[in-house]
Computed example of a mutant assay.
Amino acid sequence: MLQTDSMWRCVCALVLTFPAYSTAVSGVLNSPTNVQLTSTNMDLVLKWDPPAGAPRDLVYTTELILRKPLMDSKPGCVNTSALQCDLTHLVVSIYGRYTGRVKAQLGAQSSAWASSDDFLLDKQTSIGPPNVSLYSNGAKLEVSITDPVFVHSSLREIYYYATYNITYWKKDRMKELKHISGLQQNRVVLHSLDPSTEYCVQVQIIASTAQKPSTPSIVHCARTPSEKEPPWVAVVVALFILAGVLTLVVFVVRHWRSLSHFLCPKYAIPEHFKESLLAPPKSSLYLVMQTSQPVEEFSDQISVVMCSRTEEDGSKKPAEEKR
């Protein structure tokens, strides 16, 4: 009986260890699982899960296969320990159909390739949230929207028709949502809002050929100003200003003489200053100019000789003119 029990134990141990032994002998590893291509704003990333019971020093190698418009494959990450690989730099067409694949490696051992499903980049990429700014403009709120930045091209170049959906509500009444759909302009004014009330706004992009809308934007909130002042307040303010101006004019007219003496005082010049200013200059040059005689001018007589033609022989006949 003891020999029989020991024999069965040996058989069971051999059966349990046979798969691991056969795997080590064959040098074949299990392939990665849950392989998928993901994309946000036109990038391209391959992700996967490690094989069951994978050792810590397991590494991976990836490839990107372009299936449409042309069949081509390009190597991606090599001997990486991460569980994802950025393949954005390998994208050759934003309208292409791609497949990613990955295999596990441990020394000389290598698993079979594990492939993802086909991925249409322009249709399946996730569009990120738009950037939104909210401004208070009188009794209205102005919403400013900016498209997310794409890795390849831009949103408007890839999706010829893209619109905005705006959702807004009073901050304390989230169940009472209001929507504005199909907007193409990136600046929108929200009208008919209650004064002195805080409103919140969220925006989402709907692209023409994308399979799903964009991620909603961050919620932005702003308060509308208080009720506008009634028209009579402006009339009263204008009357006060006019009364002030009239009072100032009357004061200036009644006290003009005093103001003129204050602003433009009259000062008498001392006598010795007057004598020094009216006295003739004592400069030697000035005295010489006053006493000198006019300079006599001389001129010489100049004779000017002019020639004229005769009608018969065409010879020149001098003519003299004196000046």
Rank of each mutant, 00 (worst) to 15 (best):
Leu120Gly: 06
Leu120Arg: 09
Leu121His: 04
Asp122Ala: 13
Asp122Met: 08
Lys123Gly: 04
Lys123Phe: 12
Gln124Pro: 02
Gln124Val: 07
Ser126Asn: 13
Ile127Ala: 08
Ile127Gln: 04
Gly128Arg: 14
Pro130Gly: 00
Pro130His: 08
Asn131Glu: 11
Asn131Ser: 07
Asn131Ile: 06
Ser133Trp: 08
Leu134Ala: 00
Tyr135Glu: 05
Tyr135Leu: 05
Tyr135Gly: 02
Tyr135Cys: 02
Ser136Gly: 09
Ser136Leu: 11
Asn137Ala: 01
Asn137Thr: 06
Ala139Val: 08
Ala139Asp: 15
Lys140Gln: 15
Lys140Asn: 07
Leu141Lys: 08
Leu141Gly: 03
Thr146Gly: 14
Asp147Met: 05
Asp147Cys: 09
Asp147Glu: 15
Pro148Met: 10
Pro148Ala: 09
Val149Thr: 05
Val149Trp: 14
Val149Ala: 11
Phe150Gln: 08
Phe150Gly: 04
Phe150Asn: 11
Val151Trp: 14
His152Ile: 01
His152Leu: 00
Ser153Pro: 15
Ser154Gln: 06
Leu155His: 06
Leu155Phe: 00
Arg156Thr: 04
Arg156Pro: 04
Glu157Ile: 05
Glu157Thr: 10
Glu157Tyr: 14
Ile158Val: 00
Ile158Trp: 08
Ile158His: 08
Tyr160Cys: 03
Tyr161Met: 04
Tyr161Trp: 12
Ala162Leu: 06
Thr163Lys: 15
Thr163Gly: 08
Tyr164Cys: 01
Tyr164His: 09
Asn165Thr: 05
Ile166Glu: 04
Ile166Ser: 06
Ile166Trp: 02
Ile166Phe: 00
Ile166Pro: 01
Thr167Ala: 05
Thr167Asp: 12
Tyr168Trp: 10
Trp169Met: 00
Lys170Gly: 01
Lys171Ile: 05
Asp172Lys: 00
Asp172Val: 00
Met174Asp: 09
Met174Gly: 12
Lys175Met: 10
Glu176Trp: 15
Glu176Tyr: 11
